[in-house]
Structure formats: C-alpha cells, structure tokens
Design a binder for these strands. Structure first.
Lengths: 200, 200, 200, 200
DNA sequence: AGTTAAGCGAGACGGTACGTCTCGTCTTACC
DNA sequence: GGTAAGACGAGACGTACCGTCTCGCTTAACT
C-alpha cells in the first residue's frame, strides 16, 4: 500500500499518512481495536475520512500498517545449543505477546482476519511468513541446525514454526492458560524432543 | 442460558427458541458469520428482536448455541498404538474443521472472541475445554497412555492438546497452509516424537 | 404525512414529531434554509436521523411541514367593494411575505421545488391551491363577485390569482423591486381594471 | 466575469473558457441543472477544477454564462395594435420557456437564486432587467404605446412587465397549469383590459 | 372460567459508524 | 506562470444495526 518510491503515489501527503498511522495506533492502544473507527482515526489525525479510504481498503489495513511500523523483530541467538536458542527466541516472542501494546492488537487482527480475507492474507504475508524478517532469524537458526545435523533435512521448518506459534496463539486467542516462559519452554521441548517415550 | 427444567424459564416459547437457533445457523452458513445480525435472525425466525435479547447476551452467544446444538463430538479409538489412535482422532477433527458448515463458523467465533471476552470464555469453557465431551475422548486415551507408560505421568495433557489444536487453528485461522491429513500426521508425530535427533 | 387519526401512524412519537418540526423551523430561521441539514435537525431535536427519514421523504418536506404548522391563513373582507377587499387581502399577504420568518422560507421552498418535483407538487397542492384555506377566503370573495356581477362569470379565478401571486413572487424571488403596499395596490388595480385606455 | 479585452485576463485560455461553457451547457441539458457539478464540468471540459474556480464564483455563474451565450432575445412587432403585439411577443416567450433546453434551466437558475444572492442579482441584472436587450424590445413597444396614448404615461412599465412575467414564472416554477398560448393571451388581456366590469 | 401477568411479534426510538459524495482549497509537475 | 490533475480537510448524505422501549395480542397458570 504505502510503497515509498512508487511514482503513482508521489502526490501522497506524508504528513497525513503519518498522522493517520499514529492516530490508529494510539486509539488501538487506548480503547482496544474493537472501538477503533475510521471516523475516530480521521478525527484524531485531523484528516478527512476520504483520505483514509483513498489509501487503505479497511480499518484493519490501517491498524496493521500502523502496527507493522512499530512491531519489533527478534534475533535468535546461535550458541550451538538449538534447544536453548529456540527457548531464548520464544521467550522474547512471549514477552512481546504479553505486552499490552502489542498482544491484544495482534489477537484483534487475527480476529479481524476471520471477517475479512484481505486481512488474513495481509497477516500471513506480512507478519507470519517464515521468509519475512519477523520469523527470518529463527528460520536461519533452524536451517543452520539442519546443516549441522541437529535437525533432519527432511523437516519442513515452516510447519515446525506453525506448531510452535500455533501453541502460543492458542493461549493468546483463547486465554486457555498463562502465556509465560514456562509454557514457552514446554512448547519448545515438546516440539524438539517429543513427549512420547515408548517409541523412542 | 437455555436451561431446560429451570422453572423461571417455563414460559419460554420452544417454537421461537428453535426458530432462532435455526435461523442463526442458516444465516451463518449462507453468508458467513460476519453478515449475521440480530435483526436478520429475528426477521428470518419470524421473531421480535426483544425475544432474542431476552435470552441471549450477544449475537455470538446465539450462534454458539445454534452451533453447539449440531457440532458432533469425536471418539478416539484405543487400539493400543497411541500414535495411530491420536492420528485417527485428529483426522476426524481435520475433516470437521474443513467442513464448510463448521470450519468457517468456528474460525469466526474465535475471531469474535477477540472482541468480546464473554465469547472467549464461552468458547473455552464450552468447546475447547479438555474436560468437556468434545476433547474428553482423546483426553481419556491420553490418560490411559500415561497409565500404561506410553506417556510420562508428569506431562500436562492439557498443554499437549493446546499444542496440537493450536497447530490446527494456526492453519484454520490464518490459512498458512492446507489443513489436511498430512499436516495432522506431522503434528501428531512431532508432538509425540519430537523433531530433534542430536540432543536425544 | 402526519395525518392524525391514521391508525398506521399510531406508533409515531408525538414528542419526536414536534421536536423535529420545531428544530427545522428554528434552524431555517436562524441561518436560512440552505444551511438546514437533516443531521442538524436531528441533532437539534435530540432525535435519530432515521426517525426523520422514516416519516419524511426529504429535507424540504420537513421544513414545509414545520412551516405549514405555523403559517397563518388570511381572511378576505367583504365590504361590497371588490377592489378595496382585494387590496386589503393582498396587503396582508405582502406583510406576510416580508416577515423575515416567512418570506425567505417560502422563497427557499419555491427554489427547492426546482430541484425536487415532489416539493413542487407539495407546494402547489398544499400551499398555492385556490381550493385550500390559504387562498380559499379570497376565492370565496371572488366567487361572490361573480355572483353579484362585479366579475364576469366566464373568468377563470385561478388564473386571476396566478397573475396576482405571480407578480408578488416575481419580487419575492428576484428582488426586482420592493414588495410593499404600493406594489400590491398596483397589481390589484392592474388586474381588475387593466392598464390600457384606448381599447376600453 | 469573462470580460473580453480586460487586460488582467489576458493570460486566460480561450480554449478552456469555451470548453467550460459548452460542458456546463451540455451537462445542464442532459441531466438537469441539479446534477451539474463543478467537478463534472471540469472533467467534461478536460480542464482543472481550479481553472473554473479562478474565473467564476459559483456553479450558477458558469451555467448562467453558458446559458446567456445561447439564449435568444425576442423582437416585439409594432403593428399599431398593442394588444396583438404584446400577445405575439408573449407567445415567443412562452415557446422559449417551454423549450426543454431553456425552460428548466431558467427555472433552476431562479431556484438557485434563492440560495445564492449573487445569482439573484446576476439573474435580475443580466436577464430580467427591462433595460436589457432581452426585455428591451417589448419595452420599446410599450414606450411607444405611451407616446401614442395607448397606455397612460403615468404607468410604470417595469411593474407591468413584472406582472406579466410573474404570471408566466408562476406556471414555470410551480407547474400550476399549462404554460401555453391560451394562458399568455389571458395574461396579456387581463393586464391591458382588466377583468372587472362593474367599477369601470 | 376468568383473571392476570409473562412472553411474544412488531417496530419506533436515540444513537453510532459506515462508505460515498461533493465542496472549495491546496499542491505538484508539466509546458 | 497558467494549467491539468488530483490529493486534501470538511462535512452531509442516506443506510445498516445496535440495544432499548413501548405497544397490543396471545397464552399459560393460578385463582
């Protein structure tokens, strides 16, 4: 959407663009995503509604952009101990998801993705993709593990991440239990070592 | 909410009650949860809006009730082979989540749960709880596995199910890949045996 | 529109109805018809917009109703002197059209009638019709004049009134000169006696 | 507004000027004045909106200019019979007002004049003034009638024309009856000879 | 069997936000 | 420097639903 350098967007007002993203983010944090409205964003940003509709297809797209601007990526360490490195990475993710500025917003966007297919693909393509910087660092660590023989080369690493993040999202979305370090450790250990003992 | 036998509800009209649930279900399946409205349900059911508001706190509660009426539970087999039994169970779940009459509706309810805390707790308590019939059968199979030594007794089975269902929900909610038997098998195998080989 | 006794309107809220008409009238007088908006009326009346759209087809219809509620009718005297009686009647009309609470509003409604055919027919049927009370009194006087021989029975009295009121409207709408007693007298005299002298 | 020869306008693009007037006229005739917009004119004329705003104060001014360019004036004959000459003149006016290319447009401009005082004065000064060419010919005929004694010299001819045109406008604006030759004849005869017979 | 109070259908009500439209101004790039 | 193009702030439009409320009507339970 906002593609810097794209000449077809050269007339776009930077001031309005930034004001809209900041307003969206602020409103989302203050009262929760559900209470964010296009009218509210426009009013807060001192901008006409049309200016928002001109550049974004939906409320979710605005919030997502605002959010993508500020959401950090995480570095996965490489100490040589895959399990430890994975745990360290997941602790960061869990801390992020527990941050009241981010967790509820992510949950809400996944919720919105159920109403609007565009949001769904936006979320996957720009946030949850293993190729993207966000998951890129842990992916690199896992690929390195495949090279070093810590993980089988036949393994689909994307699936591995889906299982791990799916477990975190289960608690984020449903509140079925605390989303803490202990849980993160359990998830990593389960995925890497398995829970069965008979068949090993 | 609708508690048969509760004398305070004795005057409740069965006809309206049923008509509302059926209308809600039908509308949800025809145009998707997002386009369901209380007004629409009332019109379709030939019922006053107040009658809905009298007995349900929200749109989601109506749809959830309608949905709970018809959603099947699944039996987990007990052949002695835990991995095989778990796979069999998960195949059924995957088939259910792929059913256009159920999958999108569940996804939408999880989405709605992000807007309405009541829906979130309703979903957990009446659908995703491991004590409930829905997950009860696989829980029983897992407990039996603990008794037989196939699984360590220290294991928190609820967490195990959260990881497994979280993996399925990741694809259900985000469409990050096909929600098929192959994926289900990968999830079961990963959770039971783990993917690491160096540290074992 | 508001037809007292009509059972199909029995649910209509009298309070809202009155509040809307009063708000419309007040706004029209304060800032002129052009600046009246449905939103403004709704806000001023403490009423939902839908309540206005439910009962009136357009802004003009609301203002017209509000206006019709308060616009007075005029009695034409019957002294036996037709010219004098006609003049007296027209003096009242001129005073009415000069009233800042009425004249500009009538002019605006005639203006609106050029944009909306419904307003045009509403204006004619409910305001300018010779059968209506508003023009009824002078019509009765003219008919009496026909019976007494003061006016030829072949005369189309409606046309007569169109000429007279057309002359007044010319000044009301275009401001082509003062809309005063002197002008009213000239109009009456011209219509009754004519301006030519050669052919008489 | 567009004053040829005015040096301050020397940079004005003739091509744009003409295109704007033609576009305004065409749009007005195609869909009616109410649906004409500055944006529409600009798009149709292949012109920037600013170019219109630079040279005209309002939509009405553009349309009026476009309209004044093409509206014909009428010659009043001079046969010696005032009544006949007046009738002939008015027949032409009535035919003009019934022309779908002109009548509705004039009605709309009078309507617009009720919203915008500038339009009102523009209409009077450039269209309905008795000194202007438009009414000049009949004025000359009436003045000649005063000289020949057909009309009293004390008569205010402007008022006479206001009565006559007011009668026509009454039907044009309100549709209170057919705007035809019969009506025109009645108006002329009434104004010249009067309708009363007793008091004469 | 008649009374009475609830649940019921219907839908008007005060609101909020929607997404669209048009306004008149402002900005940019071209010629 | 005037122009075509069109983004911008503003704000009304008419619609859709919300959740509340008041109507009479129906109906079951309790005199």
């Amino acid at each position: 959407m906002p593609e810097p350098g794209n000449p077809s967007h050269s007339r776009r007002s930077t001031r309005s663009h930034q004001a809209i993203l900041q307003a969206a983010l602020a409103l989302c944090r203050e009262n929760g995503y559900a209470s964010v409205t296009i009218e509210g964003i426009a009013a807060r940003a001192g901008v006409g509604k049309q200016t928002i509709y001109r550049w974004w297809p939906s409320k979710a797209a605005v919030v997502f952009d605002a959010f993508a601007d500020v959401a950090p990526g995480f570095q996965a360490p490489h100490t040589g101990d895959l399990t430890a490195d994975f745990r360290t990475f997941l602790f960061k993710v869990v801390r992020f998801l527990n941050d009241p500025d981010f967790g509820p917003c992510i949950a809400a966007l996944i919720g919105e993705a159920q109403r609007d297919p565009d949001v769904r693909s936006m979320f996957v393509e720009r946030f949850a993709e293993s190729r993207l910087p966000r998951r890129g660092s842990i992916m690199a660590r896992l690929e390195s593990a495949q090279e070093s023989g810590e993980l089988p080369t036949s393994l689909d690493l994307s699936v591995l991440l889906e299982i791990v993040f799916g477990a975190l999202y289960h608690r984020l979305l449903l509140g079925s239990g605390p989303l803490d370090k202990r849980y993160a450790r359990l998830v990593v250990d389960t995925v890497l070592s398995g829970v069965g003992n008979a068949s090993e």
